[in-house]
Each structure stands twice: as structure tokens, then as C-alpha cells.
Amino acid sequence: MDNAMRINPLDERMFGGNGVSLAPVGPRERISLRADEKTAKALGKALGVDLPFKPGSAVSKGGKTALWIGPDEWLLIGPDNGSISTTLSQTGKQVFSIADISHRNTAVTITGPNSTAVLNSGCPRDLSLAAFPVKSCSRTVFGKAEVVLWRIRKEEFHLECWRSFSDYVWKYLADAARSA
């Protein structure tokens, strides 16, 4: 074999029951982008996804998502084919910074009517629809791990965490789900 095989740390894991399902998210391209407002607008055009400027909001288009993380920081998630970094590296004279964190992070999808109860077992945020509506996203904490939480639908969340924390995050979620 020429190349080492890349292993997803949450492969083979599944949980369902008590009104909540957990599933690992497959490989994705993830880019941490830092740029000023003017540049971010231009980069959004190039990517075909308007980068959000409203704090805590996410914009998805054509399989790519831009999550607002801070006033000049976005997390870009897309298919595992390098298309985001390829597009961004061909934008000419713009000044910005990108870091490929595709393999630093992994993610879990949490679905079902009890998903907020399970998330709130480790996350202190108000996850009511009024405070954290659909298409909200935020860097926050889950137990002892720093995570990025993104609400895709009313009862569907995407939880990004560092790869090395994913076993802890998964077991914490599964434990909470068992007693949900």
C-alpha cells in the first residue's frame, strides 16, 4: 500500500433511542478563514456562498456552509474534495488567511425531539428556538470540550469538535441520550 489510510475517529459508531439519534459526520473539507469585511464579501462571491455577517448565523448553498464564528472569522465546511481551498487560493490579490482544519475536526449529527435536552446535558446555552433558531451557529462548550454547534433544522444539530476530543464528546452525548 502506498498511502496510509485515514481513519475517521468515530467510524462505526451509532446511537438511536429515547427520542434522539447520534451519527458521525463523514469526511468534510473544513477551512478556518480570517478576513476583513470587504475581502469576505469578495470571497463569498468566489465561493458561491455569501459569508454571514450577522453574529451566530450560518449560510448554506450548494453543499457548502459558511458559519460565523467571530467578527472576522468563519468556519467553511464543504464536500471532502478540496474545492473550498482551491477556490480561495485562486482569488488573486486579496489579503486573508486560511487554515485547513479538515482533519483537526470531526463532527456528530444529533437529531430527534430530545436533541436539545441531550445537548444541554453538556452545553450551557439556551437552545430554545427563540434564542438559537434554525441556521444559528456558535463556538461554545460541551462538557470540557470546545465545540462549534450549528442548528441545521429544528431537531437536527451538527456538533464540530476536535478529533482528539471526539471520543469524549461521543460518549458524553451517548450517556446523556441513554438517560434522556
Binding site: 453574529p55 451566530g56 467571530g70 467578527p71 450551557p124 446555552r125 456558535s138 461554545t140 462548550v141
Partner: peptide
């Protein structure tokens, strides 16, 4: 839990994030 208003996020967030 103590809530702290972040002027950049424009909302009150739990103390644990700070």
C-alpha cells in the same frame, strides 16, 4: 449561571465561555 453580554456576539452568553 452568570450571563455575560458579549459586545461582538451581541447577546448574553454563559460565563463558561469566557
Amino acid at each position: 449561571m452568570l450571563l455575560v453580554h458579549c459586545p461582538y456576539c451581541e447577546e448574553e452568553r454563559p460565563e463558561l465561555e469566557f
